[in-house]
Design a protein around this nucleic acid. Structure first.
Length: 347
DNA sequence: GTACATGATTACGC
DNA sequence: GCGTAATCATGTAC
């Protein structure tokens, strides 16, 4: 016997013995051969059901028990089940075949792509790689930012899974509770397994809507994290002092032609732990700003020229020639001539 | 909060 | 593609 049949017929064969709370004709019945008597039986039962709420609790309990034990009860119960099957299910049947929510699918896809849901893949390494490509560099700062990004994404992932687990646990507990309640009630009123199943679906849908909110919030958090990470202007950091020194040294020691070759740019980038593109940006900005306000940079130019001269003197006194962008072979060029040359070059 | 410094971006010319 | 000039957006010192 399947579950539905078992539930629907759970009262079949339950004692037909009489009960003091029922009228005599209900206790004895009509022997099942008298059609009018049966109709009257059913009429009486329905009448009692209709008036049961007007009675005291004890009376109602006694009457309910009597009704459950009545010989006509299983038949009436089955009829009610059939009616419910034909009406309720046919009405609601169409509503259950809902297509998957496109918004939920989008959220799921995004969480999967970002590595928040699905199998662990290094805290969204794909996104981090994309971010790295967008930022155009792999310097030390970038590595730090990547690990920061991954750490934050992992944090989001953990929170998401913890909350999801809580929701699923709550959903399961509530579903079990409702199912037990319905099974218990199915003894006294017609509740088919399909109805229980439908109720479970309703509960799941309710919890799904909560889950969707969680997914939406998670997606928003990831989007904010990504936008902050990917927005190069937002994450602009000043170069460290050493890097600026190296770049300035090269600039002022090559003031007559402050255009580093590709090789020189690469070497400077390596020394400063920045990208070649950043070196190019720096020289572009430096050239234009120097040209715009030579007077303002005069002191700085003198300082670096003096430093270069000292470096060159030291190098020659040690019998060796430095050969790097920061200490060019040209030794200490005459600052005035350099300035003049640079201005002529720019003009 | 403001002014200035600075790295990045964009439009343009070559 | 590179450099220039203007501009944006953020960092920093006060």
């Amino acid at each position: 016997m399947d579950e539905q049949t078992r539930l629907m017929h759970s009262h079949t064969g339950v004692g037909m013995a009489g009960h003091p709370g029922l009228p005599q004709h209900m206790q004895e019945g009509t022997g099942g051969t008298d059609g009018d008597g049966r109709k009257q039986d059913i009429g009486d039962i329905l009448q009692q059901i209709m008036t049961i709420t007007d009675q005291s609790l004890d009376e109602a309990q006694a009457r309910k028990h009597a009704l459950n034990c009545h010989r006509m009860k299983p038949a009436l119960f089955n009829v009610l089940c059939e009616i419910k099957e034909k009406t309720v299910l046919s009405i609601r049947g169409a509503q259950e075949e809902e297509p998957p929510d496109p918004q939920l699918m989008r959220l799921d896809n995004m969480l999967l792509a970002e590595g928040v849901s699905g199998p662990e893949k290094g805290g969204g390494s794909a996104a981090a790689a994309a971010a790295a490509a967008a930022s155009g560099g792999v310097g030390a700062d970038n590595s730090a930012e990547h690990s920061d990004y991954r750490a934050k994404l992992t944090q989001i992932r953990q929170i998401y899974h913890t909350e999801l687990e809580k929701y699923e646990q709550a959903c399961n507990e509530f579903t079990t509770h409702v199912m037990n309640l319905l099974r218990e009630q199915s003894r006294t009123r017609p509740i088919s397994p399909k109805e229980i199943e439908r109720m479970v679906n309703i509960i799941h849908r309710k919890f799904s809507s909560i889950q969707m909110q969680l997914k939406q919030s998670t997606c928003e958090a990831v989007m904010i994290l990504r936008s902050r990470f990917l927005d190069a202007r937002r994450k602009r950091r000043n170069f460290n002092k050493q890097a600026t020194e190296i770049l300035n040294e090269y600039f002022y020691s090559h003031l007559s032609n402050p255009y580093p070759s590709e090789e020189a740019k690469e070497e400077l980038a390596k020394k400063c732990a920045i990208t070649v593109a950043q070196v190019s940006n720096w020289f572009g900005n430096k050239r234009i700003r120097y040209k715009k306000n030579i007077g303002k940079f005069q002191e700085e130019a003198n300082m670096y020229a003096a430093r270069t001269a000292v470096n060159a003197a030291n190098a020659s006194s040690h019998g060796s020639q430095a050969n790097s962008p920061s200490t060019p072979n040209s030794a200490a060029p005459c600052l005035y001539l350099c300035l003049l040359s640079f201005c002529l070059h720019l003009n």
